[in-house]
Design a protein around this nucleic acid. Structure first.
Lengths: 196, 196
DNA sequence: AGCGGAATCTTGCCATTGTAAAGTTTGAGC
DNA sequence: GCTCAAACTTTACAATGGCAAGATTCCGCT
């Protein structure tokens, strides 16, 4: 017995969108599909998100918060030494991308995100800051170090969820995918300590 | 005086597609837009590419060949020592992404590419092999080194063309974008020689 | 030369999508 | 209880991808 007014349609639409994202992929995530999944009329989302970009932006903002949470969680189960912390952050970054590939794609490669949204840019900045500023308490942080870290894990995550890594691996000797990922993350950590 | 048969419509459509890509962005690249740009009816592309995926796949395949060419060109103007070669490859990789962002996006983040296409997978493999196998004449190549190289430059290129790097830079001290890119690529090269 | 088939291109059509506008129902405050 | 704004639905329209059927031109064969 659903009343005319849903009550919490905004949250329901975000939930429905993520269901679609996981089940059918990012290409199937449309305004109308989200409305169908939530059981409302196809124009209902407009009232809460304005347009498709608004829905995707809200979804991405929530995604960045969970993304940050994933890194935070890995960090919590790591020791205090800098190498272990970096490795944990890298695992969190890549692990999130593998666990939620659709959401990760939406967050990073959607042309329809509205980066002028406060919620989105704040959430994204907070997530990136975890990775780029950890261990750089001496202000200001070295941007080269920050971007090197970020580029490496981001490239690894991206190539992974696009299947390019697996595609290439089939032509090389039979290391396991997990081993390869850990290997790259190890080099990521090692590279940090080579120069101050 | 255009005859009923275009003669080389396939090539013309690819050319038109790239014009649209550069001028209006990847979102505006549709089958019908390409047909309009080439001055033919909206269903003409079907005969040459089957569907939209076919057009994008052909375009991406050509893109990967030019991508490889860009790296090759940089390599040609670099010295013989390993560090200079790697730096040149990194510059070629990132430079191509910055010069042709639309095409780069299409090549790496389009969900509609048909990777079972011989032309596409061969062209992509050839491009990646340049970066991942250079200096690894001792077979088989170390996959960890290969993927570390690839991840770093790919992540850097991706973050760059998405504007995330510039967005972050505005919050840090005023290094120039070029300096930052060169700095990351330098670390990329240095990291190579840290372990054998 | 000319004929027939095949490749090329066009026209017309349909389902889906995003978005705007107008109408309907509900609930909150007075 | 009334009013009104918010939430939601219905209707409508342009654009897209894709399919089918028809028109036009080219090529190979005799």
């Amino acid at each position: 017995m659903r009343s005319y007014h849903h009550g919490s349609l905004r949250a329901a639409l975000l939930q429905a969108s993520e269901t679609i994202l996981d089940r059918d992929g990012i290409a199937a995530l449309t305004l109308r599909a989200a409305a169908r999944e939530a059981g409302v009329s196809h124009a209902a989302p407009t009232h809460h998100f304005g347009d498709l970009g608004g829905l995707l932006t809200a979804l991405a903002a929530a995604g960045f918060e969970r993304f940050r949470g994933a890194m935070q969680a890995e960090l919590g189960s790591a020791g205090p030494e800098q190498g272990a912390r970096l490795l944990a952050l890298g695992r969190g970054y890549v692990g999130f991308a593998r666990a939620c590939p659709g959401l990760f794609q939406l967050m990073f490669r959607s042309e329809r995100l509205d980066w002028s949204s406060e919620a989105l840019s704040k959430a994204a900045d907070a997530a990136f800051a975890m990775l780029t500023q950890d261990g750089q308490a001496g202000h200001p942080p070295d941007m080269v170090i920050a971007m090197t870290r970020w580029s490496l894990v981001h490239g690894l995550a991206t190539l992974l969820i696009d299947g390019r890594l697996e595609a290439t691996m089939q032509k090389g000797p039979g290391r396991s995918l997990e081993t390869l990922i850990e290997g790259v993350l190890s080099r990521f950590v090692q590279g940090e300590f080579q120069t101050t």
